[in-house]
């Protein structure tokens, strides 16, 4: 992973506006925007993948070993789509 944006100096930048490292925006943690945080209840979860599919930030991933879904709170913006769309009401938004 690259350095945060403010630590990159002009000497390190490629000519012509070319960015050589794919996906380096992930050094910026959008999780700091969040005011509400999704709370996951693994007993109520029916493992339908809807939260994974509908997450705009791609922060939800399945943990096949533990048989649960996990949230990456570094990037979760707390939009609440997962909680609203969950058919089993296994996700609740709470103050962060």
């Amino acid at each position: 992973m690259t350095k945060p944006m403010e630590q990159i100096s002009w000497q390190e930048i490629e000519a012509g506006g070319v960015i050589t490292e794919p996906g380096n925006a992930s050094c910026y943690h959008t999780g700091t925007w969040r005011s509400q945080k999704p709370k996951y209840d693994e007993n109520a979860c029916i493992r339908c993948w809807r939260c994974y599919v509908m997450c705009p930030d791609a922060v939800i991933s399945p943990d096949l070993e533990k048989n649960i879904f996990v949230w990456n709170y570094d990037y979760c913006k707390g939009c609440g789509i997962c909680a609203y769309e969950c058919p089993a009401k296994a996700i609740v938004m709470e103050e962060d």
């Binding site: 050094c27 997450c55 705009p56 990456n72 707390g78």
Partner: peptide, 18 residues
């Protein structure tokens, strides 16, 4: 499209792109 993009909360457009 990796996480860390600056879309607004609940943006369905970036979901479409995904």
């Amino acid at each position: 499209i990796s996480s860390g993009h600056r879309a607004c909360q609940g943006c369905a457009e970036v979901l479409a792109v995904r």
